[in-house]
Amino acid sequence: MKPLFAIPGDKALEQSVFLVKEITQPFFSTEFHFHHECQLVYVVESAGRRIIGDNISYFDSGELIFVGSGTPHVWINEQKYFEGRDKLQARSLALYISPDLLTEHLSSFTNTNAVKSWLKKAQRGVQFHGPVKTEIVALMQQMLQQQDLQQTISFITLLHKMMTAKSYEFLAGTNYVNPYNDKDQTRMDDIFKYIFRHFKRDIPLSEIAAIAGINVHSFCRFFKSRTQKSFTYFVNELRIGYACRLLQEKEMSMVELSNKCGYRNTTHFNRFFKKIKGKTPREYKREVSSL
């Protein structure tokens, strides 16, 4: 995984503390990558799967996530976006922050220890919820229309709101560290894309190892060293995440649900669901319905 030390195509960020922009594309970039700049992303309109560090989840419109410096990440749209159906778009607001320039400039006015500490913790990825999410998004939208001092004031306000937020969750594990090196980029891209396309069926280790271009034993070691998860657990986590989304959206029997998620029988489905979510599918459904 090759680090990108500047956001591609945005030379302005090389001399600026921050850069805010609106992005509208047929689909999000599918390259699994990381860069030195921090990145705040508000998904205006889109859906699919995302990886932040070692966290794999579904995303939808309205999500607000801060990705810390050097944290591998990718948002990959559902297949229908790539097929050009229904005039779908991937729209987002993005705020890029240079952590070095931020602390350097702030040090002229205040002690930056709290900022450095928060940026360090944010390398796990932070998802914001509740009223603070609405406030942060409003500031991002405001910054798009502002310049110079006004925009800087909004940025400092936004930074303070992120640092003092109460409604948030970290995404990557407590001890997560970026395990990727320069040689991993293409291989991990190919592996993730293949899994995302085929996770609803059995993927033999020999098949995915061939995609990676290595033997099965080497693949198992390589995959676990990069994701901190076995291949089997990773696929099951992805399937259960898909099941949670279906439980929120549709009414269906457990047999139909398990089949749609790639399980041959409901026993395996229920076991993995409880192992990953700590509750049965029916318990999860009741909780969702009560909300």
Score class of each variant (00 low, 15 high):
Gln145Leu: 15
Ala243Trp: 05
Val137Cys: 02
Ile211Ser: 01
Gly125Pro: 02
Ser206Tyr: 07
His33Lys: 08
Tyr58Arg: 12
Leu247Pro: 09
Pro179Asn: 02
Ala114Val: 10
Phe170Met: 06
Glu78Val: 01
Leu291Arg: 10
Ile276Trp: 07
Ala172Asp: 00
Thr30Asp: 05
Leu93Phe: 12
Pro179Asp: 05
Cys261Gly: 01
Cys244Gln: 15
Trp118Ser: 04
Asn111Ile: 05
Leu102Met: 03
Lys193His: 11
Glu207Thr: 01
Val137Tyr: 07
Tyr96Val: 03
Pro72Val: 03
Lys275Thr: 10
Gln79Ile: 00
Phe28Cys: 02
Ser57Gln: 12
Ser98Val: 02
Tyr180Ile: 15
Leu257Tyr: 03
Leu4Cys: 05
Leu93Ile: 12
Ala122Arg: 09
Ser289Thr: 15
Glu256His: 14
Lys193Thr: 06
Arg239Cys: 07
Ser218Leu: 14
Ser290Glu: 15
Gln147Asn: 07
Thr227Trp: 03
Thr174Ile: 02
Glu37Asp: 04
Glu104Met: 02
Trp118Phe: 14
Arg286Lys: 14
Gly241Tyr: 04
Ala209Asp: 04
Lys166Leu: 08
Ile97His: 09
Ile51Tyr: 08
Ile211Arg: 03
Asn77Met: 03
Gly241Met: 07
Ser61Met: 02
Val67Pro: 12
Glu83Thr: 06
Ser107Asp: 13
Leu171Tyr: 03
Tyr284Trp: 11
Cys261Tyr: 02
Gly130Cys: 03
Asp100Ser: 07
Phe223Pro: 12
Met143Tyr: 09
Ile203Ala: 09
Phe196Ser: 11
Leu95Glu: 14
Pro131Val: 00
Leu119Asn: 04
Met140Tyr: 13
Gly9Cys: 12
Glu287Thr: 13
Leu106Tyr: 08
Val43Phe: 12
Pro3Asn: 08
Ala12Trp: 00
Thr267His: 10
Met1Ala: 06
Ala122Lys: 07
Lys2Thr: 05
Phe170Val: 06
Met1Gln: 02
Ala138Cys: 08
Lys285Ala: 15
Thr186Ser: 09
Phe59Leu: 05
Arg197Gln: 12
Phe82Asp: 10
Arg50Tyr: 14
Leu144Cys: 07
Ile156His: 08
Leu106Glu: 14
Leu102Tyr: 00
Ala6His: 04
Leu95Gln: 15
Met163Ser: 08
Gly125Ala: 08
Ser258Trp: 00
Gly9Arg: 11
Thr112Glu: 07
Lys277Met: 04
